[in-house]
Design a protein around this nucleic acid. Structure first.
Length: 435
RNA sequence: GUGAAUGUAGCUCAAUUGGUCAGAGCACCAGACUGUGGCUCUGGGGGUUGGGGGUUCGAGUCCCCUCAUUCACCCCA
């Protein structure tokens, strides 16, 4: 394969046989969100690079090494969106969306770009379904957002979704915790891996989710964020848990859960599913009470999550959860053409197909000029159930021979009767198609 | 960015220790007494063996580089 017939690394083509499943997922997300009173928002695919430096944080992996950043022809510093929350909060501030009343509840389904080494369930371009609830500071909003994500996943038929929950405090209590954590870790520096030794100064909380055995052994006995929460954070976290319990959403507390983005405060969560390999988080999010102010707007609390659709699709397929296949046309108009009369019959076939389509029927027609046998083979392979054969004889009497490919039966009927027969049908018949 | 494995027709894979080894199955196209699919049979198209360089009389088979894929790490959706 040459360069021009190969897609860029970490990207994916969604082929015709897969688009029905994609549309189903996106539709499901939209319906689900509208049930919760969330409205769709669309933001640009690229933003000023500064938005992510300020919003996501200078020391995060995303900003340090994963962004697709470039200068446009006007010399502006631009970055392809690596995550959704910063853009949404930016739009919230730019358009003063809060004026319409709080909270502002929105969702999006948009592509994200991160320069990472591709792996199962991890791409350089992926699609994220995310929601944001902006303006509500209390635990009710946390519970609502988590409920929305959890019900979405289980509603698709997924079993064994594990909700992991933690609280990483706020500007009041986190410094104290951070100091305690650093203090503890300093006593075990030599047991930490190189990466974590570097993290100690830059972003000590991140040492907690290191997977290396040595580090895990150290952090297993490290102070926990939840033991250092201030009174407000403590009660907030307790109430979130009570609410989840009363909503019937099972969860487990994971003190190692810290999330890689700087804007998180208080509640952070992930929904994981086994069978995804190392990339097992299908949905994750948290509260970001300081983000709006960080971006120069009035202090405004918020909470949301991001959910990777490629990863979700992978999980659904692994779990053998049935997904829609693209429907085949209802009927195909085939031409039984012999000799000099062929062009005229082909024209009539095109006209008949047009009339069917005008009547709302999904109709295929041969454009290859192939033999009747080949046309039938084609119809069979495409899963088209009915073939209307148009030959000299039929054309002369304004009829077609309608063949039912499933039953193997055939009968003559007028063109008008054919259109009527399909006209009443609601939606295309299901059929198999492609690979 | 680190480590490992892999890379032969659209797909799944063959090809003794480097020497007719560029093949098979499926798929595709076309035929099988000429207006009819699915089954069967016959025939056909299709690959500069990911790309580049090197060793050799000769490389898909050995060496180097590069690109890509997969898995793990890093991290995340």
């Amino acid at each position: 394969m040459g360069l021009i017939t190969t897609r860029p690394r970490g990207t994916e083509d969604v082929l015709p046989q897969d688009t029905a499943a994609w549309q189903f997922l996106v539709d499901a997300a939209r319906r689900h969100c509208s049930r919760f009173g969330y409205y769709e928002i669309r933001t640009p695919t690229f933003e000023h690079t500064e938005l992510y430096h300020r919003g996501v944080g200078e020391t995060t992996d995303i900003v340090e090494k994963e962004m697709y950043t470039f200068k446009d022809r006007g010399g502006r510093d631009i970055t392809l969106r690596p995550e959704g929350t910063a853009s949404v909060v930016r739009a919230f501030l730019e358009h003063s969306l809060g004026q319409a009343g709080l909270p502002v509840r929105v969702f999006y389904v948009e592509p994200m770009f991160r320069y990472e080494r591709p792996q199962g369930g991890r791409l350089r371009e992926h699609t994220q379904f995310g929601v944001e609830c902006i303006g509500a500071a209390g635990p009710l909003a946390d519970a609502e957002v988590i409920e929305l994500g959890y019900e979405f996943l289980t509603g698709l038929g997924l079993r064994n979704i594990e909700v992991q929950l933690n609280s990483i405090g706020c500007p009041v209590c986190r410094p104290g915790y951070r100091a305690a954590l650093v203090d503890y870790l300093r006593g075990h520096v030599d047991e930490l891996c190189e990466d974590c030794q570097a993290r100690l100064d830059r972003n000590p909380l991140r040492v907690l989710d290191c997977k290396r055995e040595g580090c895990r052994a150290v952090t297993a006995k490290a102070p926990r964020a939840t033991d250092y929460l201030c009174d407000d954070c403590r009660s907030h976290f307790d109430e979130v848990q009570q609410l989840l319990a009363s909503l019937g959403i099972p969860f487990t507390l994971n003190p190692r859960l810290v999330r890689g983005l700087d804007y998180y405060t208080r509640t952070v969560f992930e929904m994981v599913h086994g069978g995804l390999g190392a990339q097992n988080a299908v949905c994750s999010g948290g509260r970001y009470d300081g983000l709006a102010a960080e971006l120069g707007g009035p202090p405004t609390p918020g909470i949301g999550f991001g959910l990777g659709l490629e990863r979700l699709l992978l999980t659904l397929r692994n779990e053998r959860i049935p997904l829609p296949e693209p429907p085949a046309p209802d009927v195909m108009v085939a031409v039984a053409a012999e000799g000099p009369g062929a062009p005229e019959l082909q024209q009539k076939a095109m006209v008949l197909a047009r009339d069917l389509r005008r009547a709302g029927v999904a109709a295929d027609v041969d454009v290859m000029g192939r033999s009747l046998k080949a046309q039938l083979r084609y119809a069979n392979k495409q899963g088209i159930r009915y073939v209307a054969v148009l030959g000299e004889e039929e054309a002369a009497s304004g009829e077609v021979s309608l063949r039912d490919m499933t039953a193997g039966t055939q009968r003559r009927l007028s063109v008008a009767a054919l259109v009527d027969m399909f006209k009443g049908r609601r939606g295309p018949l299901a059929g198999k198609r492609g690979g």
